[in-house]
Amino acid sequence: METVQTIERTEAFESPWAGGVSPFKTSWQKLMMWLFIIGDALLFAGFLAIYGFVRLASPSWPNRAEVFHLELIALMTTALISSGATMATAVEAARRGHWRMVVRFLLLTLAGGLAFLGMQAYEWSQFIAAGATLQSNPWGVPPFGASFFLITGFHGAHVSIGIVILLITAVRSATGRSRAGGLELAGLYWAFVDLVWVFIFPLFYLI
């Protein structure tokens, strides 16, 4: 009976439809992370597409130079890009078994993420102080405030979740309970947060 089950399991894993034990020669955890990233990317793509149509449909749109502090947005982008580089370095160090270096670079990544969130909180507080809400704003184009809070808020939520993941990964790495594979998954998520911002930054703030 046990032999039959083993044969069935082996056949299922090795059938062409199942993709073998390791489809695309990668771990199933990593493959699932990529699937999650594709799904989440579509959510952001939907938000940005809707933003584009709302903007096209509006007879006027606020002048971004009057509304945003571009220096602050550039600084936010710098913080996030830098944290992406430190995270990639931490993942590489984990692959080589340099765990002290991993912890150091994870803490730097955390600092970058927290700096980004702090600047975003400041930007939001300025917007709210100017009278912007989801329904209305002083610039007279209601969808502008709604798009701003929705898109940057959703991205900010992703950064916050990333910070929690990084914190757990840093603690686990410092206590010797983390593995290179786990760190790679955390690294993929953090780079995805970076990637999404790279689309929001020009489409919302510059164009």
Binding site: I81, A85, T89, E92, P202, L206
Partner: peptide, 23 residues
């Protein structure tokens, strides 16, 4: 191995600056 991340980082920072200037 490490250097390729940091050269990418420098390139990304330059791109960020250029995009803000263009914007």
């Amino acid at each position: 191995g490490y250097r390729r991340y940091w050269t990418s980082w420098i390139f990304l920072l330059c791109l960020n600056l250029v995009m803000v200037i263009i914007g």
